[in-house]
């Protein structure tokens, strides 16, 4: 059980010439996800020599669909600017969200294509293992 009262998003930025690191604390959601996008857009515009953007995610609370949308937008913008996006210290919840939505690989793949996290997209969470054992499902079909 998570006991997570909705918290305002706080952004802490640490930078060098080629690397920007933004520490995220609080919820990345409908009410404040735009602030992260604005911060990142500002960094991209102001630093032509930027190579790496690190979003430090350990302090993230709830990430809702707007939050995920902003992460996808940041990925698109960094890609266009030739900057590599790193989602560092992801929480289990964030990984779960990225897994369910099928975006983990896209957001975390290194340029050679391999996912930086071993979490395989689409594996069943273990809590249904018992239920499956109770009765076999039908054959899986791939389209």
């Amino acid at each position: 059980m998570t006991m997570m009262p909705s918290a305002r998003l706080r952004l802490t930025t640490v930078d060098t010439e080629a690397t920007v690191r933004i520490e995220l604390r609080g919820d990345l959601d409908y009410d404040n996800a735009d602030r992260l996008l604005a911060a990142v857009t500002g960094q991209l515009a102001g630093r032509p020599r930027l190579e790496h953007l690190h979003l430090h995610c350990a302090g993230l609370g709830t990430v809702d669909s707007m939050g995920l949308s902003v992460l996808l937008m940041i990925h698109r913008r960094t890609g266009e600017a030739g900057v590599r996006l790193h989602l560092d210290d992801r929480t289990a919840r964030l990984d779960r969200l990225l897994t369910i939505t099928g975006t983990l690989e896209h957001l975390t793949a290194s340029p050679n294509g391999a996912a930086s996290s071993p979490a395989g997209a689409g594996e069943s969470p273990k809590n249904s293992a018992e239920a499956r054992a109770a009765r076999p499902t039908g054959p899986d079909g791939t389209t």
Binding site: I100, G102, T103, A121, S128, A131, R132, A134, R135
Partner: peptide
């Protein structure tokens, strides 16, 4: 018994 359907994909 409650099972999760074994489907997945991208948004």
């Amino acid at each position: 018994a409650v099972e999760e359907a074994r489907t997945h994909g991208t948004l």
